[in-house]
Structure formats: C-alpha cells, structure tokens
C-alpha cells in the first residue's frame, strides 16, 4: 500500500496515475485492465497547448476509441467571444505570479534554514540532540505553514475570481459545459495527458470538469496527474538557474488527497541525495510523494492506493521505498 486510505471527495472508485507515456506507454494496458476493450475514451490534451489536436499517437495507442474534448481550443473560442473574461483571467494570472514571487522569497530562506539544521551533526549529548531536533521540526513546520498559507491565498484569488465573474454560470462557458457533460456522459473513461501544468489546470478548472464527470475510471499522467491532486507541486533539483526549490504552485482539482505525484522524478530530483529526499518527504507529509517514472503508476481502487511494480515513494528517512506490487 502506498499510502493510507484517504477520503476521495469525488467519490470515484478508480483513479489511475501513470508515469510519462512518451517512451514506454502503459495507458492502453491500464485501460484494458480497468475498462476493457469497448467504450469511448474522452481525452484532455490541453497541456499540449497549440498542439492539442495532435493526438493521433494517443488515439492509435488506445485503438482509435478516443474523443478529444478540445479543452484548449474551447477556451481560445471563449476568449475570442468574451474578451472581458480573457482580461480578467490575465489579471488573475498576473496576481498569481506576484503571489508566487512573494512566496518564493520567503520559501528560499526557510528551506536554507531547514537544510542547515538537517546538515548539522547530531550532538552526543542527548539533551542537546533533543534541542536540535526541536529546531529541525520547527523549521520544517514553518515551511509547512508557509505552504498552507500560500495555498489559502491562491484559493482566495480563485474564489474571488469565480464569484466576481460568475464563472459557474457565465454564458460564454455554460454551453461548452453542456456539450462536455454530454460527451463525458457517453465516455467509459477519461484520460488526462501532461504538458504545461498551469495551462492545463486553468483550462480544465474553467469548466468545473470534475463536477461533470460520472463515477468512471480516470487515467492521468505527468501534468495530468499533478492537477488532480489537492495541491500542485512543481519541482526540479538541478535547474540551470536558481536554487531548485520545490514550490506549491496551485490548488489542485482535489480529485484525491494524500498523494503528490512526481512525474519524471528520476530526471528532475536527486533521488540519491538522502537529505533532499528527506526534506521533500517531510515537508509534504502526511502526503505521500510518489515518483512517477516510465512504466510506473498508482491506482486508487476506491479504498486505497496500490502501486505498480517499480513505483517508488519518497520517505521521511531520505530513502525510496518500493510501493507494494499488485
């Protein structure tokens, strides 16, 4: 078991999070297992942006049963017809970027402090060790509190935006929602591909897509998996510029709680550095940080998460634990 059973607010019985699909696709296998050979599959490839409709490879992989929801193109249409909404979204975008910048400034100092405490050698004296451990835990707690404050601030921006611009029943959006509801009603499963995580999340959220989705299997990989979590965490330990501090970027769609998907973890994270792994896992605990690399994945079966062979989880000890095989 990858993580303890958590409540699933969507109430779905089947969520399948997969590793990247470009080189070694496993989606068809997962679809066969959870849906079988028949039934239309709705697809979201909005993260591919202007290449959204270049889904032939995906369709071929799934035997031609894909119907692309064209979320990216729909939003482009909405922007054309509803320029006020476009402007409002631009303003929200700038505000969120500003908020992220403010958060980043505080986060860097806090992570430096937490790393410094973690690197300190444990004193021989038990009493001193207790004091150091308290400081370590406090430094970590401060980061967790900052992450939570940041999430709350982001949620506030979104809530005001939804209310001020009457997103749930805005005319330019509503008829798309009805079309999407019809398509999704006929779909046996929904596949959400990766790509640009913020573009994908913002466009999917505009349609409250998960509210339209009946209780059928949901497949997602890379950025697609990231947006379904209750928080979207972006990460890279060795970027060419900057310190490489993982950041809470967004409030996710909340299809599940308790798991933070980390696509391309082997490429993006220094998983052989126990201090970095420990810091990452402790910071986001009790969430389980799951490394989603090629041919890995986890499935929510309505009661608990189950990992594919080879799937690993970052532990608070700084190691990687294999998720249980099925």
């Amino acid at each position: 078991m990858v993580t303890k059973a958590k409540t699933n607010p969507g109430g779905w019985n089947r969520i399948v999070l997969l590793g990247p699909q470009r080189r070694k696709p496993t989606l068809a296998e997962a679809v066969a297992e959870h849906i079988g050979p028949r039934g239309m599959l709705a697809a979201i490839t909005a993260g591919w942006e202007e290449r959204e409709d270049e889904d032939q490879e995906l369709s071929d992989h799934l035997g031609g049963r894909v119907r692309n929801l064209r979320i990216h193109a729909r939003v482009e249409q909405i922007f054309e017809r509803d320029p006020k909404l476009f402007e409002a979204m631009q303003r929200r975008h700038h505000r969120l970027r500003y908020l992220q910048d403010l958060y980043r400034r505080r986060l860097g100092h806090m992570l430096d402090s937490a790393r410094e405490f973690m690197r300190l050698e444990d004193p021989e004296d038990e009493g001193e060790k207790l004091l150091l451990d308290e400081q370590r835990e406090d430094a970590m707690g401060a980061i967790r509190r900052l992450d939570e404050q940041h999430l709350a601030a982001i949620a506030g921006v979104h809530a005001r935006f939804r209310e001020n611009h009457r997103i749930p029943d805005r005319k330019s959006i509503v008829h798309h929602k009805e079309e999407l509801r019809t398509i999704l009603g006929d779909a046996a499963g929904l596949c959400i591909a990766g790509g640009h995580v913020a573009v994908l999340l913002n466009r999917v959220r505009l349609f409250d897509l998960l509210e339209l989705w009946p209780d059928r299997p949901l497949f997602a990989w890379s950025a697609g998996a990231m947006i379904l979590a209750d928080r979207t965490v972006v990460f890279h330990d060795t970027p060419p510029q900057g310190p490489g501090n993982a950041e809470v970027l967004e409030v996710g769609l909340g299809a599940f709680h308790g798991v933070i998907p980390l696509p391309h973890a082997r490429k993006r994270l220094k998983l052989d550095d126990p201090l970095r792994v420990k810091l990452f896992a402790r910071r986001f605990a009790p969430h389980a940080c799951i490394a989603l690399d090629d041919e890995t994945g986890v499935t929510w079966n309505g009661k608990r998460w189950i990992g594919r062979a080879g799937t690993e989880i970052l532990t608070v000890d700084g190691t990687l634990d294999p998720a249980r095989k099925r």
């Binding site: 990766g194 790509g195 950041e247």
Partner: peptide
C-alpha cells in the same frame, strides 16, 4: 552556452511535465 542561454531565455522547465 547552457548558463547563458537559459538565463537570457528561460525555458518552461518548472511548468511542463510531458
């Protein structure tokens, strides 16, 4: 080149997960 190009033209490294 890597340092110069990525500083002048930062890519979408933090945002794109394909």
């Amino acid at each position: 080149l890597r340092e110069g190009l990525s500083w002048l033209f930062p890519g979408p490294l933090w945002m794109v997960y394909e």
